[in-house]
Amino acid sequence: MHTRRDTRLPADRPDIRLIVTDMDGTLLDADGNVPAGLWPLLDELRGRGIVFSPASGRQYATLAHLFEGVDAGMVYIAENGALVVRDGVELSSDPLDPAVSARLVTRVRQLAEQGGDVGVVVCGKHSAYTERGDEAFLAEVRKYYRAHRLVDDATAVDDEIIKVAVLDFGGAEGSAPALAEFSDTHQVVVSGEHWIDVMNRTADKGAAVRRLQRQMGIGPEQTMAFGDYLNDLEMLDAADWSFAMANAHPEILGRARHTAPAHTDDGVLRTIKDVLGL
Rank of each mutant, 00 (worst) to 15 (best):
Leu66Met: 15
Trp39Val: 11
Arg146Tyr: 06
Val51Phe: 01
Asp22His: 06
Asp117Leu: 08
Cys123Met: 12
Val51Trp: 01
Gly73Trp: 06
Val122His: 02
Pro98Met: 13
Arg142Phe: 02
Pro35Gln: 04
Leu138Ala: 12
Thr26Leu: 09
Val118Ser: 04
Asp152Ser: 07
Ile161Phe: 13
Thr130Asn: 10
Leu28Thr: 04
Ala156Met: 02
Phe137Glu: 12
Val89Gly: 03
Arg146Ser: 02
Pro95Thr: 11
Phe67Pro: 09
Val141Ala: 09
Leu45Arg: 07
Glu113Arg: 15
Thr26Asn: 09
Glu113Ala: 15
Thr26Val: 10
Phe52Pro: 00
Gly119Pro: 06
Ala128Pro: 00
Asp24Lys: 08
Met23Leu: 13
Ala82Gln: 04
Val34Pro: 00
Pro54Cys: 00
Leu45Asp: 02
Val34Tyr: 07
Leu66Tyr: 11
Thr62Ser: 14
Val105Trp: 03
Ser92Leu: 15
Asn33Lys: 15
Gly119Phe: 09
Asp97Leu: 04
Asp134Met: 09
Gly73Asn: 07
Val75Cys: 05
Asp153Phe: 01
Ala102Asn: 00
Lys125Val: 12
Leu96Val: 05
Ala64Ile: 10
Thr155Asn: 05
Arg48Ser: 14
Gly119Tyr: 07
Thr26Phe: 07
Thr155Trp: 07
Leu150Val: 14
Asp158Gly: 05
Val51Ala: 07
Asn80Trp: 08
Ala139Arg: 13
Thr62Met: 08
Gly49Gln: 04
Asp153Trp: 06
Glu113Ser: 15
